[in-house]
Write a protein that binds this DNA or RNA. Structure first.
Length: 438
RNA sequence: GCCCUCAUCGUCUAGCGGCUAGGACGGGGCCCUCUCAAGGCCCAAACAGGGGUUCGAUUCCCCUUGAGGGCACCA
């Protein structure tokens, strides 16, 4: 069999949303699975609603998701151009052929296509045999002379030698129009695969651009890990048929196939997405994690334009990586590492001061600091255990007041890691200040 | 209204005639522990309803109901 050619054909009329992303993903997966070609074709025939800004969003989102295209805008290919606004000559030729075939007529200045009245049969790779009879003649060229979606979509699939049309189920009922056009143009039908829709999390209907969590750009801004979002999207309508859920892309590429796609719509679940994202965050390699998070902190202007010391920043990030569920939780979690001006949680203070002698413990720690080894968590743990043993106290008697003094909050990363990363200077300075004011 | 599609825990799903109906998220509990997360263990939670076919239906067929989509000079 000849090479598989699939296309993702978005229209730059709004921000790139999650349903489009999954359609792109499934096309990409099928192309990679079969060693085929993934085409990006921009359907910008609606001059009123298109914009260059939305076009950039499509490119950026696809790149961020890692869905590289083999043919398309910015990339080229033998079947270009890949923006429909630049393919007027090709449409004119095909329109002329349809006119010559006697299947068209004019009405109110528009060009209509006369349907055959025959039942249209499509063999869908996901749904099986679907029959539908198109009932009305339909417009193929507007009165302003521009061709409409149904026409250009089919013409381009023919011209670009598309073998498989993988798209949302919302196109299933339109497919009878398309098969009529394929036949009228004397072209063989592609294999169709209509994938189920993503339903909005709350309320009725499919997810739309206005729904919470619908926009890819938003996940990008919020510091989601692209591989996690893609993994989650794979699970919406497809599964590896065993109990695995966290899967590397090359594994999905190996297993993915059209018959394995589900037939029923899937409801979007932000909690599950958060979970997958957390798993990816915790599994991220140190170098990548440090870069990724540093980039995120910069994007939210966490340092207010100032440049942090990169070695220290890296240590802070890696210390906190396993402690947060998402990158976007980090700014609220690491503030005290970069400023001495942090508030002391009054409730935590009250609780800690309600028993024992926290000031005595802090003084002992402060006194031990100059001679202590701050180079490893293990050394610091030994230090605290030594102090506890020497002063007839528990390690907790040091840890809780010290954490509060050093960070202002009762929650945070591993205590020994906290000491190590802050370093001797900051630890000593913060404890003495706390003792002086508390 | 007409046409098309779909139907397993709250959600995402496994199951393709015989299973104690499995996993994951979320929820509840316990454990671990320097806090909080994370992690480990346990619990609750589903075959929409009715007819067939069959020795036997979650699984195959039909109907009902429910959900979703399409019926534009939008894509």
């Amino acid at each position: 069999m000849s090479q598989v050619r699939v296309r993702f054909a978005p229209s730059p009329t709004g921000f790139f949303h999650i349903g489009s992303a999954r359609t792109a993903l499934f096309n990409w997966l099928y192309a990679r699975h079969t060693g085929g070609v993934f085409i990006l074709r921009v359907e910008d025939t609606d001059k009123e609603r298109n914009s260059d800004e939305f076009l950039r969003v499509i490119y950026d989102s696809l790149r961020w998701l890692g869905l590289d295209w083999d043919e398309g805008p910015l990339k080229g290919g033998a079947f270009g151009p890949y923006r429909q606004s630049e393919r007027g000559d090709i449409y004119r030729d095909h329109i002329a052929r349809l006119k010559a075939s006697g299947r068209t007529y004019e009405k109110d200045g528009a060009l209509l296509f006369r349907i055959s009245g025959e039942p249209q049969v499509i063999e869908d790779a996901i749904r099986g045999r679907v029959e539908r009879t198109e009932e009305k003649d339909f417009v193929i060229v507007r009165k302003d002379g521009s061709p409409v979606f149904h026409l250009v979509n089919v013409v381009d699939d023919i011209a670009m030698k598309v073998t498989h049309v993988i798209r949302g189920e919302d196109h299933l009922s339109n497919t009878s129009k398309h098969t009529e056009l394929f036949k009228a143009l004397g072209a063989p039908l592609p294999i169709y695969a209509h994938i189920p829709l993503i339903l909005k999390q709350n309320g009725p209907g499919k997810m739309s651009k206005r729904d919470q969590g619908a926009l890819i750009e938003e996940y990008q801004k919020r510091g989601f890990i692209p591989e996690a979002l893609v993994n989650f999207l794979c699970l919406l309508g497809w599964s590896p048929k065993d109990d695995r859920e966290i899967l590397a892309m090359d594994e999905v590429v190996k297993l993915f196939d059209l018959p394995g796609i589900n037939q029923s719509n899937a409801r979007f679940d932000e909690k599950k997405l958060s979970h997958v994202n957390m798993v990816y965050l915790h599994a991220m390699q140190p170098d990548r994690c440090a870069d990724f998070v540093a980039g995120y902190l910069k994007s939210v202007d966490f340092f207010k334009g100032a440049a942090p010391e990169t070695g220290y920043l890296r240590e802070v990030i890696l210390l906190c990586q396993p402690k947060v569920r998402a990158v976007e939780d980090l700014p609220g979690f690491i503030g005290y590492f970069f400023s001495d001006d942090y508030p002391i949680d009054p409730k935590a203070k009250e609780k800690i001061f309600s028993k024992g002698d926290p000031k005595a413990r802090l003084s002992e720690l402060l006194a031990a600091a100059p001679g202590a080894d701050f180079s490893s968590d293990a050394a610091l743990e030994a230090l605290i255990q030594g102090l506890a043993a020497a002063n007839n106290a528990s390690t907790g008697d040091y840890i809780h007041p010290a954490r509060l003094a050093l960070s202002g909050t009762p929650v945070g990363p591993s205590f020994y890691g906290l000491l190590r990363v802050l370093g001797r200077e900051r630890v000593a300075q913060r404890i003495s200040r706390f003792l002086a004011t508390a």
